[in-house]
């Protein structure tokens, strides 16, 4: 699988932008993450697979502190995730997130959804924030929907607005938590196309998704989660063509069936 030139250039840098060391997370008594150790390089696209309840969503949500980990270290773009509120805010400005259920703000127009954070958090003047928003809407292919409300858009359009909203903060890392799972089949492609283009531009991405076609084409690396751990990870070709773990083989056979 060919990676784009931009990605290849970034990979040559081999600079780790996310580092996780022995990360543990409990929900009450439930041990959701059981020692996750991995790292992601700048510009890398990582697809995370695993059965439901395996901890893959929890894992990416610890990276921008939507979930707090209780043991281990997470370092994002040189900032260590701790209880320090300034660190958390700094990381959230730097890490964009796209959710399964879009989570657009229904009381704001598409334009205001996108300009809100740049204006309130980055303190950009309205004119500049709108300029950025227009460019991004153009980029995700729905420039003509700027004045509509999220409820007036299709699921695929909403998810593309959500991607534009995250990009408006000009993040270095994008997290995708099952971005196409809530979409009707005919809308999945339009969202994956946007993500494909984004990956080509050199964005560091962690994508929780079961879109194997997308993973094979775009991912540099694939991780398999089960029972709160990474049970296998490897380059895309190696992972799909020559999986080592039985659990991985079984899982792949199930989702490809």
């Amino acid at each position: 699988m060919a990676t784009s030139e931009a990605t290849a250039d970034a990979l040559n840098g081999t600079e780790d932008i996310i580092i996780c060391r022995d990360v543990h997370k409990w929900y009450g008594n439930f041990h959701a993450l059981r020692g996750v150790t991995t790292s992601v390089r700048k510009g890398e696209v990582v697809v995370v697979l695993g059965p439901s309840g395996s901890g893959k969503s929890t894992f990416i949500r610890t990276i921008n502190r939507l979930e707090e980990h209780q043991r281990g270290d997470i370092i994002v773009d040189g900032i260590e995730l701790s209880n320090d509120v300034r660190n958390i805010d700094a990381i959230r400005r730097d890490v964009g997130m796209v959710f399964q259920s879009f989570n657009l703000f229904p009381h704001l127009t598409v334009m205001n959804n996108i300009t809100l954070a740049p204006m309130k958090v980055r303190k950009l003047p309205a004119s500049q924030a709108e300029e950025i928003a227009e460019e991004l809407l153009e980029r995700v292919g729905i420039a003509e929907q700027a004045t509509k409300y999220p409820g007036q858009l299709s699921g695929g359009q909403q998810q593309r607005v959500a991607i534009a909203r995250a990009l408006a903060m000009q993040p270095n890392i994008m997290l995708f938590d099952e971005p196409t799972s809530a979409l009707d089949p005919e809308m999945i492609k339009e969202v994956l196309d946007v993500m494909r283009e984004l990956a080509g531009s050199g964005m560091t991405m962690i994508v929780v998704s079961h879109e194997i076609g997308f993973a094979r084409e775009v991912a540099d690396r694939v991780m398999m989660f089960d029972y709160g751990k990474i049970i296998e990870e490897g380059t895309t070709e190696q992972f799909f063509d020559n999986p080592k773990e039985d659990r991985t083989k079984l899982f792949l056979s199930q989702i490809l069936a």
């Binding site: 939507l66 805010d89 959230r92 964009g96 959710f99 989570n103 954070a117 959500a162």
Partner: peptide
């Protein structure tokens, strides 16, 4: 998800 999305965007 509403509050989560806002927090993920860095809104205090």
């Amino acid at each position: 998800g509403q509050a989560e999305a806002a927090r993920a965007l860095g809104l205090p």
